[in-house]
Design a protein around this nucleic acid. Structure first.
Lengths: 199, 199
DNA sequence: GCATATATATGCACAAAGTGCAAAATTTCA
DNA sequence: TGAAATTTTGCACTTTGTGCATATATATGC
């Protein structure tokens, strides 16, 4: 029989459709957010544009802001995975720099700027974005601790996680402020350089 | 005439009543949040308990979560003021430690734990709380920069602000986790000691 | 004290978010 | 094919938050 090694992806019609619907919702949401603003776009409209009922929307996202947050969420997971790899042969800050540089390529600066601008338009969304930085910090700290589990490293790893996420924040803030004038990679390097010089 | 030295507070009936009403709203809100949970307590009930109409509630707070956030807000301003003073004769981390120790006395640990617990019950509120840490970091950074405006200090001051707010976060998290077993002052000193040792 | 300006409180109507429930419609799998 | 599981939908309902007009309370000049 043709290879039953590994768990077969088993991507049935159901899951495929579900993913496709989620994708359509996000797409429709972003389109409407950009066209008429985050607050003005109603879930009703988004659902209509994504060709589902309003009620079904809530089977995919708990609230309107989750559309925006879902974008950032994926990036966080990628970053965590990349960090775990880079930590094999690098010290924390070097690893974070490398991980960030590696994955930022996959996210067009223009998109990040758009999402950032949308988030600034609503206090609750902005808050959740900033909160996600803190969750990210916790996640990255735990990954670093996998690599150096000794308790005497805990404090410095926490510092490293704080500084790393702080650097990401500064770089993305700068990106947004400059409107994408300079590439993300450059900004990241700049911030991480300054960070290392300051320690 | 009985002393007209200094600008008279000019606390008219209006402002006094306004403050009193705000106080009643917060009190009623906290009472209901504790009794039946954050989400279950409706603004309608809170307004009734504070003896105002539902519509009037919104003249005082933009939303339900602002009741909880108003508690944290006051502390942030006090901290900023204390930091400004301590920076006269201390280095950033020392100053932050002193400022935090000074003002934490004014906030009973039990109250802080209750507020923290309530905030954990709702994702949006939790997010705003964490976001306020980031705003706090920005505010404290700016205060530090008043003292050392030279651009070559910018990065290290940013680091100091990040580390300081990080320390506050760790101390308050510990307080909440331990349920108040050890006093805030002790936790703060512990975290700041670890921080300084790690640098 | 009174008139008048100004700030605050309230009621009403309304849009939108979010939830529970039960009835279709669809997909899976034997 | 037919039963089981999952997804989609409609409907009714509660709650949040806002706009607007009106009433009420406070402040201020005369």
């Amino acid at each position: 029989m043709s290879t039953d090694r590994e768990a077969p992806p088993k991507e049935g019609l159901r899951e495929r459709k579900r993913r496709e619907t989620a994708r359509r919702i996000v797409e429709a949401g972003m389109r409407l957010f950009i066209d008429r603003g985050y607050e003005a776009a109603t879930i009703e409209e988004i659902a209509a544009a994504a060709d589902i009922s309003r009620r079904t929307f809530f089977h995919y996202f708990r609230s309107k802001d989750e559309i925006l947050l879902s974008m950032q969420g994926g990036m966080g997971e990628e970053l965590a995975a990349a960090l775990r790899e880079e930590l094999q042969d690098k010290r924390p800050l070097q690893a974070m720099r490398a991980a960030a540089l590696r994955i930022c390529g996959g996210y067009p600066a223009a998109d990040m700027i758009v999402v950032d601008r949308l988030m600034r338009a609503n206090a609750a969304v902005q808050a959740r974005k900033q909160a996600s930085y803190i969750q990210q910090e916790q996640a990255l700290f735990e990954i670093m601790r996998e690599r150096w589990p000794q308790p005497e490293h805990e404090v410095s790893l926490r510092l490293a996680a704080m500084a790393s996420v702080g650097a990401l924040r500064l770089a993305f803030d700068a990106l947004s402020r400059e409107g994408g004038a300079r590439p993300v990679a450059l900004l990241l390097n700049e911030v991480f350089d300054a960070l290392e010089a300051g320690i």
